[in-house]
């Protein structure tokens, strides 16, 4: 599980290299014209995903512990 997550994170971290590149302004929307915004959103989404999966994982562990205590 940990290895899987690390691979995923390192993959998305590698996206940061694209964030530095010069990009042509295709639209006049600053945030969308250079595709850096997608990198930011991707990184933020990953962070949120990690937080929530961690919280749900803890939730499951707590449930197990509570059940064990009941019996």
């Amino acid at each position: 599980m940990t290895r899987y997550f690390l691979t995923l994170i390192s993959f998305f971290l590698s996206l940061c290299t694209f964030a530095q590149g010069e990009s042509v302004a295709t639209s006049n929307n600053f945030m969308l014209s250079n595709h850096k915004v997608f990198v930011s959103v991707a990184v933020l989404t990953i962070i949120l995903l990690l937080i929530f999966s961690f919280l749900f994982w803890i939730e499951r562990r707590l449930k197990q512990l509570e059940d064990r205590q009941k019996n």
């Binding site: 915004v37 989404t45 939730e59």
Partner: peptide, 19 residues
């Protein structure tokens, strides 16, 4: 808890897409 997850994903993704 699911509601909070859904709302926060909406906020993070949506707010960056609005110019």
């Amino acid at each position: 808890k699911w509601l909070s997850a859904v709302l926060l994903f909406y906020v993070v993704i949506g707010s960056y897409m609005v110019p």
